[in-house]
């Protein structure tokens, strides 16, 4: 439903987006990740027709965003970064404006507002000026605006940024509930969000896609993928470390001492090896006083750091 081909955007000497190719299908929730300034927002602005690409093209539901802007914008729901809204209006007035602009009339306007308000739990603040609302409610006004016309494509720039855990949870639930009939792109800094709601994660860095896969696939690239951690008294740590190293399938073992006096041993597997059963059997036969034992699926932040660059290096390079 979203087709992006060789999308590029330069601002003077700075290339913000450098040739992105991406296809998003119905039912996909794509998590768009990347460091600040990687080009996430710029890409979203081009998908929604706010910015014109320097080269390349975007098509949404078959409509070319540059040449068939209105048709494309009709099928897109967009939550811009920071969820901007007219602060002197109440959510009811604001959503009424959006509904009218989107071509609804009379009873339809009311029905649309009601549906969007119910989904975003806005009814309590419907008649208070948006300026006086808390950040969480403001964000939900932005969400309500984006889903008002039940769009086939949803583009959300950091929908949960600045929300408390309860609010994050309800936004995620909402996105999940809608995900079946839509194509959704969500940009975020929160890696746990990707694991929670996304069917696919794309990491961009310096305007390029550096990783693209399901969260599981990305996790598999992590050093901690299938690593097993064992927590036991420091006295037993050295023997345990040696025994763990001797296990087949273990590539290396790392040891850290925790503040509570226990030692933490992490065994990293050789490619493809599964360690958890071996390690637990070993712990039982050796009668270690194991306090904790767990295997990890992997760490997204590790993958994120491995494929992206730091902002200082990025700033230097982008000015060539």
């Amino acid at each position: 439903m979203i087709e992006i081909e060789k999308l590029t955007k330069s601002f003077g000497p700075i290339t913000a987006v450098a040739g992105i190719d991406l296809k998003v299908e119905k039912g996909e929730v794509l998590g768009f990740l990347g460091p600040n300034g990687a080009g996430k927002s710029t890409t979203m602005k081009m998908i929604t027709g706010f910015l014109a690409p320097s080269s390349g093209r975007v098509a949404v539901c078959g409509y070319d965003v540059e040449n068939q802007t209105l048709q494309a914008q009709r099928v897109i729901g967009y939550l811009p970064e920071g969820a901007p809204a007219y602060g002197d209006m109440t959510p009811r007035q604001f959503l009424g404006f959006i509904a009218e602009v989107r071509g609804y009339k009379g009873a339809d306007v009311k029905a649309r507002i009601e549906a969007a308000v119910a989904k975003t739990e806005l009814d309590a603040v419907l008649d208070q000026p948006i300026d006086t609302l808390s950040k969480g409610f403001k964000r939900r006004v932005g969400l309500a605006q984006a889903i008002l016309h039940d769009p086939a494509v949803l583009i959300m720039d950091e929908p949960t940024d600045g929300l408390d855990p309860n609010q994050k949870h309800s936004v995620r639930k909402l996105l999940q509930a809608m995900s079946k009939e839509k194509a959704i792109i969500v940009s975020t800094h929160l890696l746990e969000e990707v694991e929670a709601i996304c069917t696919r994660a794309v990491i961009i860095d310096r305007g390029r896609i550096v990783a693209d896969g399901t969260p599981g696939e990305l996790l598999a690239r992590s050093r901690h993928h299938n690593a097993v951690t064992l927590v036991l008294p420091t006295a037993q740590a050295d023997i345990a470390k040696a025994k763990l190293k001797a296990l087949t399938g273990v590539a290396s073992v790392e040891q850290t001492v925790r503040a509570d006096g226990f030692a933490e041993l992490t065994a990293f597997p050789k490619a493809g090896a599964l360690l958890i059963e071996l390690v637990s059997a070993l712990a039982v036969s050796e009668k270690w006083d194991v306090k904790e034992l767990y295997a990890e699926a992997g760490r997204l932040d590790e993958v994120f750091r491995a494929v992206t660059t730091h902002d200082a290096a990025r700033a230097r390079e982008s000015r060539t």
């Binding site: 027709g49 706010f50 209105l70 009709r74 967009y78 811009p80 901007p84 959006i98």
Partner: peptide, 14 residues
């Protein structure tokens, strides 16, 4: 300034 420009210009209005 308030960012509503982005909202306004991404609505389906010429």
């Amino acid at each position: 300034r308030s960012g509503t420009m982005e909202l306004l210009l991404t609505l389906p209005v010429p």
